[in-house]
Amino acid sequence: MPLVHLSDMIGHAYRHNYAVGAFGVGNLHFLEGIMQAAENRRAPVVLNLIESHFENQDFEILMPAVTAAARRAAVPVAINFDHGTSPASAERGIRAGCNGVMVDTSALPFSDNLWQTRDIVAMAHACGITVEGELGYVPGVEGENAKNHPGELAYTSAAEAAGFVERTGVDCLAVSIGTVHGKMKGVPKLDYARLAKIKEAVSVPLVIHGGTGLSDDQFRKLIANGVAKINYYTALADAANRSIRENFTAERKGSHNALLTGVRDAVREEAERCIHLWGSSGRAAEVLAQCRPWHDVEHVVFYNVPATISESEITSILREGRKSLEAIPGVRSISTNRTIQPGGEYRFCLSIRLASKTAIEVFQNHPAQQRFANTHFWPVVTDHITLNLEES
């Protein structure tokens, strides 16, 4: 089960002078192509779920496939919720199964960006989740032409970066040194001197957004100056689009499946090229050996209620409780069950899946949980046993 802590994976890349690819998962073809590339190259990989893509796909439906791909992989994988628009976005990503979040408040004034990021860090770290901050503004939208989304690029200041990292507690920092999201005309001019100063000023790995269009030499210089994670989507989408256009030209336009033939391989080839270039190829074994495995946990209560309490009454109590419990950060799912074998010691079970062991304490101490438990649940429970379980 090589789903690992994102901060550990990026930290390994940072210490060993290479970069991990954080590849945007546009759909299942992208997911399969990215995972095949990582497996072929024996490389750690980050699966990036980009919030702006959710207009065209159901995030909660896609996430089980992403999680399944990560858990069955033979290489280390982390799942990152990318470019969320609010703290609620981060909570949504954590609830769905991501073990890293990035909420982009970089367009805000420095102080607002700092305070909002700090609040997200406090919430996410309490659940064991890695947080990426962004300082400076990288214009554009993933997968689209940058000129269609104009915005003034704001470069990251080394002095502000030092204060931002120290005061927010982010695990890694996305910086602005000349790249843009999406496609741009010409070759970006990157400020390596600025990047070197930022690396000296902060103690966390650096992240580059907008990797499409950079030359091999530019990537090497970025990595030499502390970049340990590179977000990459537009070039994958371009490769997929070329494959579809070629199929259309080849008179395959009568079949939807025929048009998609080769898309997965096109994504795989581009991802493999990047993995090799960025130095993560062949690193899977050492990353697995040095990174903590990631496990969800379950907080399970087996219990009984008096004969005077009907099943419909306890169902009603739990239905109301679910509404408040599901809103607690770190809660991923809640299920209520009853035993079917006669003569069992306990008749009912309440199971709450949490993001990590760290999230157990957050859940138990949360006012919503304590209010539900002390006011509605424990008063009707006669006897019970509580277990916290982790997959072995």
Rank of each mutant, 00 (worst) to 15 (best):
253 K>V: 11
4 V>C: 07
383 D>K: 12
320 E>D: 08
382 T>C: 07
260 L>M: 14
7 S>A: 14
185 K>D: 15
134 E>F: 04
233 Y>A: 15
285 A>R: 12
213 G>M: 10
149 H>C: 01
189 K>P: 00
134 E>H: 04
254 G>L: 09
336 T>R: 07
113 N>W: 04
45 V>W: 01
318 L>N: 11
206 L>M: 05
382 T>D: 10
316 S>V: 00
205 P>A: 04
308 T>F: 00
143 G>V: 10
235 A>N: 04
154 A>C: 05
8 D>Q: 10
299 H>M: 05
23 F>T: 11
27 N>L: 11
383 D>N: 14
152 E>V: 14
179 T>K: 01
196 A>C: 03
345 E>T: 15
352 I>T: 10
309 I>L: 15
327 A>H: 04
114 L>W: 02
188 P>S: 05
93 G>T: 11
212 T>F: 08
325 L>E: 00
330 G>R: 01
334 I>C: 07
269 E>W: 08
287 V>E: 01
71 R>P: 03
65 A>C: 06
30 F>I: 06
261 T>I: 00
28 L>Y: 11
270 E>R: 15
235 A>W: 04
336 T>G: 04
365 N>K: 15
306 P>E: 00
69 A>T: 04
319 R>E: 12
90 A>E: 02
354 L>Y: 03
202 V>K: 06
34 I>P: 01
326 E>L: 14
339 T>H: 11
177 I>V: 15
165 V>C: 10
384 H>A: 11
380 V>L: 02
125 H>P: 02
252 R>Y: 09
385 I>L: 13
385 I>C: 05
190 L>K: 07
63 M>V: 14
223 I>V: 15
244 I>Q: 08
151 G>Q: 03
148 N>T: 13
36 Q>K: 15
39 E>H: 14
152 E>I: 14
259 L>P: 10
159 A>G: 03
46 V>H: 11
106 S>I: 13
316 S>Y: 03
329 P>M: 03
280 S>M: 08
83 H>G: 02
374 N>S: 08
13 A>S: 10
81 F>G: 13
51 E>Y: 11
28 L>Q: 10
36 Q>A: 12
331 V>P: 01
31 L>T: 12
246 E>W: 08
280 S>I: 09
133 G>P: 07
174 A>C: 06
193 A>G: 12
351 S>Y: 00
330 G>W: 01
1 M>T: 13
182 G>K: 01
351 S>F: 00
267 V>Y: 10
20 V>F: 05
175 V>L: 08
118 R>N: 00
53 H>G: 03
